[in-house]
């Protein structure tokens, strides 16, 4: 890395941007193209990306809830929450793209490895945050429920859940937002969706189509951003 390199790459960047512009907005397919035009594919590809992130988040949240409650220091004995905390930390320590790479190798190409990667990553992230939410609930309330003879599940349901539910909702929504962004990238390692098509067009040197797909990705993320903002406001 040196300055001359940087200066020399200037014109190349300009040339590259020139090849990306204008984005390919063609609708009709023709024989000369290696792939169908991006606008034709966009709807289906976006749908796959959304499916991966929704399903992955749903699976992740379900397991994260369980591990969150079991991993909270104030709800379970040391020998339960301690190992769970360690497992959650391990899950978090693997970058999602690496998880996807491993799952592609394990279960093959397509949407499924993406779902698994997103789910595993979400468990690690959300499990820790959920446990921390539970830990912030006053111990007195837990004891008061215990005093009425409630069992563990009842205590979780009535002492903990009402106090943490709003935060769990917004953490989940935030995670979904990030998962949609993440799942767009997973295409680079062979998971179906937006990223895969960006990669396909790039390999075919079809940069105009790449820029169309990048714009589509941006629009999707912005739309999700906005939707999540509206849902958050509605929940409050």
């Amino acid at each position: 890395m040196n300055v001359t390199n940087l200066v020399r790459s200037g014109p190349r960047i300009v040339e590259f941007l020139d090849r990306m512009y204008p984005p390919d907005l063609a609708w009709s397919d023709d024989e000369t193209r290696p792939f169908a035009p991006p606008l034709r594919l966009a709807a289906g590809v976006v749908a796959v990306t959304l499916q991966i992130s929704l399903l992955g988040t749903a699976l992740g949240v379900a397991v994260a809830l369980l591990l969150g409650f079991l991993g909270a220091e104030n709800l379970t004995p040391h020998w339960v929450h301690h190992p769970i905390k360690i497992v959650l930390a391990l899950l978090r320590s693997i970058p999602v793209i690496l998880l996807a790479l491993l799952f592609v190798a394990a279960v093959g190409l397509g949407a499924f490895p993406g779902v698994l990667a997103i789910a595993i990553h979400s468990i690690g992230m959300l499990g820790k945050l959920f446990a921390e939410e539970c830990e912030s609930v006053s111990g007195g309330l837990w004891e008061a429920m215990d005093s009425s003879g409630a069992n563990w599940l009842q205590k979780v349901r009535y002492a903990i859940w009402p106090q943490v539910a709003p935060q769990i909702n917004s953490l989940t929504l935030f995670r979904l937002e990030m998962n949609i962004r993440d799942s767009a990238v997973l295409g680079l390692v062979g998971v179906a969706g937006l990223g895969l098509w960006i990669e396909n067009y790039r390999r075919a040197f079809d940069y105009a189509s790449v820029s169309t797909m990048v714009i589509v990705t941006m629009l999707v993320v912005l739309a999700v951003d906005q939707a999540s903002f509206l849902i958050q406001r509605h929940l409050k």
């Binding site: 006053s138 007195g140 309330l141 004891e143 008061a144 005093s147 009425s148 002492a159 009402p162 106090q163």
Partner: peptide, 15 residues
Amino acid sequence: RRLGLIYQQFHLAPR
């Protein structure tokens, strides 16, 4: 469960 507790800080579920 027949021993009811009442606390200084009430310990109700606020929500």
